[in-house]
Every structure is written in structure tokens, then in C-alpha cells.
């Protein structure tokens, strides 16, 4: 496998994590740290496979996946905002619920335990870019992906424009920074957070659809911590959309390396640790840098005080 093929695979594997991370950014900007990204993604993956199975149309399957993500996000919103549940505990509860539901529903829906593989005619169609594919380096990397992957690549830019260049984004961020101040200004907090979580659920559902339909199967627990990896990416970049794209590309590349090296005699388990280790490092780095900076400046102040 040459480097271009590897990067092509990396782009495909980046897509779900990236979509989820952007969804998480919308929630984070509205002031809700959503740990339930993984749950929405898992439900989205299951719902899109079920949708494809029952409607026999890939497009409708993706739509159903997104709608299910939205429904769950709105339930989350209701619990957090109206019933005043701790968002963290609610998110973990949704994670438990989604894993239980998908594990159970797999059996009556498809008559399969643990894993269901869709018939091959429902494979997610890849798009040939035609002449654009002949551009050196970029062409082969970006060619032959599904539509969702292309959507995922432009999502961070859309999110950036939406968050930083529109009235809606300004209001959303003000809700996240200071709820009382935003309310005084006449912003409807409940609606803004609802919209943010709706976008969050939609993107998570789409990510789930990409995850399951690109492999043409649903596997119990197939999200494999990607929701939390996305959270680590958000922490690394301070919840800014465009840097998050690069952080997610890093994770995608790590996954691609793992995938291409597995089955070549290396122990799979040790290789598979790589994305998780990277995510851990990503989560730790910003705080570590801040701490070191803080201590250095404190020392500088101390030494300058000693001189006088």
C-alpha cells in the first residue's frame, strides 16, 4: 500500500470522527459539554442500517439515521434543559441506553446477534471526480469517496462561517459564554441550545451513517470510542472548527496506519492502541502546555521581584 492510498483511506476514516467533533463543537459553543456524542453516533449508525434494510434505499437510510440522531439529541436537550438533569450523567445514561437498545434491536430487526451485514447492492456509492482526479497528489487522495465524506470535509468551514460570521453564531456563543447576559439581551436560550443540539444530533447521525454504511454492516459497539476521540480533538483545539479538521485528520491517519499494518504479523491489539494513545495525548497536551506556561511566567515574576 503506497502513501497515497494510505492517505485516501485516512480521509475516509476521518469523516465520522470529524462530523461528530463538529457536532460536539456546536453543543460546546452553546455551553453544553456533550459527552453523549458516542451514543448519538451509535444510534445513528444503527438507524441508518435499519433504514436501508427496510426502505431499500441508501439515501432514505442516511436520512433516517440523521433523524434518529436529531430525536435523541432533542430528548437530551429536554432532559438537560427542562428536567435539569446533570448533562454528564444524562449523556452517560444515553450511552448505556443506546448500547443496550442497539444490541437488543439487532435481533428482532435482522435476526442477527452482534453483527448484521447488509446485502452488497446497498453499498454507499463512491463518487469519481473525473478530471479532477488527475491532479497530482491531491487528486488520488480525494478521489473515490462517498458523498458523506465530501460533506464532512466542508463541514468545518461551514461551521466556522456559521459560528463566527452570522448573527445566529454570535447569539449561540453568547449563550455559551454567559447565559444570563444573553437572556438580558433578549436571546431565547432554550431555542438556541435546542438548535445547537439539533445540529449536533444531525451531524452525529450522519457520522453514524458513514461509519456503518461505508462498511455495509452494523456491529455492536462499532463506534469504538470515536465519540470520545472527537471530544479529545475538541479539547486539543479549544473547540475551533478548522483546527479540529486537522486534529481529526491526525486520528484518521493513525486509524489508517493501524488498518493497513494489521494482518502483517504485528500484534493487532498493540497496533489498535495507537488512536487511543493519540487521543489521550491530545486531551492532555493543551492543559499541560498551559500549566508549564503558567509556571514559567510565575517564576519570571518571582525572579524579577527578587531583583528589585
Amino acid at each position: 500500500m503506497n502513501i497515497l492510498e494510505l492517505l485516501n483511506l485516512a480521509i475516509r476514516l476521518t469523516a465520522p470522527t470529524l462530523l461528530v467533533a463538529i457536532g460536539g463543537i456546536f453543543a460546546a459553543k452553546s455551553g453544553i459539554f456533550n459527552l453523549g456524542l458516542e451514543a448519538f453516533m451509535l444510534i445513528g449508525a444503527f438507524a441508518s442500517v435499519a433504514g436501508v434494510y427496510f426502505t431499500e434505499s441508501v439515501f432514505l437510510g442516511i436520512i433516517i439515521g440523521m433523524l434518529t440522531g436529531i430525536v435523541f439529541a432533542l430528548i437530551f436537550s429536554l432532559f438537560v434543559q427542562k428536567l435539569k438533569v446533570d448533562p454528564i450523567i444524562c449523556a452517560i445514561a444515553m450511552l448505556t441506553m443506546s448500547s443496550g437498545l442497539t444490541r437488543y434491536l439487532l435481533i428482532p430487526f435482522f435476526g442477527a446477534t452482534g453483527r448484521y451485514i447488509l446485502p452488497p447492492q446497498f453499498a454507499l456509492k463512491t463518487i469519481d471526480l473525473g478530471k479532477l482526479a488527475s491532479i497530482p497528489i491531491i487528486g488520488p487522495i480525494l478521489n473515490n469517496h462517498s458523498a458523506i465524506v465530501y460533506i464532512s470535509i466542508i463541514t468545518p468551514f461551514i461551521a466556522h462561517v456559521l459560528l463566527y460570521k452570522t448573527k445566529f453564531g454570535l447569539e449561540l456563543r453568547s449563550v455559551g459564554l454567559h447565559q444570563e447576559a444573553a437572556e438580558t439581551f433578549g436571546i431565547h436560550i432554550f431555542r438556541r441550545i435546542n438548535v445547537a443540539l439539533l445540529l449536533n444530533g444531525m451531524l452525529c447521525g450522519l457520522a453514524g451513517a458513514q461509519l456503518s454504511l461505508s462498511l455495509n454492516l452494523f456491529n455492536v459497539g462499532m463506534t469504538n470510542g470515536r465519540g470520545f476521540t472527537a471530544l479529545a480533538a475538541m479539547t486539543l483545539t479549544g473547540s475551533r472548527p478548522i483546527p479540529t479538521l486537522f486534529a481529526c485528520l491526525l486520528f484518521g491517519t493513525a486509524e489508517a496506519i493501524v488498518l493497513s499494518l494489521s494482518g502483517k504479523g504485528y500484534p493487532v491489539q498493540i497496533l489498535s492502541m495507537l488512536p487511543y494513545v493519540l487521543a489521550l495525548i491530545a486531551a492532555i497536551t493543551p492543559a499541560l502546555i498551559y500549566k508549564i506556561k503558567h509556571q514559567l511566567s510565575a517564576r519570571r515574576v518571582k525572579s524579577s521581584l527578587a531583583k528589585h
Binding site: 444524562c90 448505556t96 441506553m97 437498545l101
Partner: peptide, 16 residues
């Protein structure tokens, strides 16, 4: 597997 569904719902509604 229905156990996990019940458990998930119990945890979910216990948060309220």
C-alpha cells in the same frame, strides 16, 4: 439482551 434495554432505560430515567 432485553436486560440491557431495561437497564439502559432504568439508568436514563433514574437521572431525573
Amino acid at each position: 439482551e432485553i436486560v440491557e434495554v431495561v437497564q439502559g432505560f432504568v439508568m436514563f430515567f433514574a437521572t431525573i
